[in-house]
């Protein structure tokens, strides 16, 4: 479970404001605007620092809707920090001469034709819904709430 929670938490780092401070000047955003051009010339404009700031575990847990006891939070903090540090190492790699890849894989283009295919065990899906009242799924009232 520990590992899994860690994985769930990692994406949350990226939007951490503090984390982004380093990049706003030559941010990815700007890079993206000129994506195609940059692709051609193969220039990376952003620079990175390895000294990333400490993650706020309590806030991360909240955004991921995971309940952590203070003790667990304390336990996770160094592990998460370790992951952040790995990213720091990755970002330190000099990629000035490397053409950026949008995705790590290259198997592009495996699409599906627009032909319907009904799933034949819908009953099993419906049966697995914790709170179902034909024909709707019942959930706690959520009107106008985040």
């Amino acid at each position: 479970m520990g590992t899994r929670a860690l994985l769930l938490l990692t994406p949350a780092f990226k939007s951490d404001c503090n984390l982004l401070n380093h990049f706003t000047k030559y941010g990815f955003h700007q890079t993206v605007r000129q994506q195609e051009k940059l692709f051609r010339v193969g220039v990376r404009k952003f620079s990175v620092h390895s000294s990333l700031e400490r993650p706020n575990v309590a806030r991360l847990a909240e955004t991921a809707r995971i309940s952590l006891t203070p003790q667990e939070a304390e336990e996770f903090a160094p592990k998460i920090q370790q992951v952040v540090d790995w990213f720091g190492q990755l970002q330190d790699v000099d990629l000035q001469s490397i053409e950026p890849a949008i995705r790590p894989d290259t198997e592009a283009g495996s699409f599906r034709e627009d032909n319907p295919e009904a799933f034949d065990n819908r009953e099993a899906i419906i049966a697995a819904i914790p709170n179902y009242e034909e024909p709707y799924i019942k959930v706690p009232k959520v009107l106008n709430k985040d």
Partner: peptide, 30 residues
């Protein structure tokens, strides 16, 4: 899974919010 995730992230580790996105919220069409 861990590997995929990392690889996925490393291609684009920086995600500042542009003004175009910051106001985006989930749309409730009830």
């Amino acid at each position: 899974m861990a590997l995929t995730l990392f690889r996925g992230i490393h291609t684009r580790p920086l995600l500042p919010y542009s003004s175009a996105f910051s106001a985006r919220k989930h749309v409730i069409f009830c």
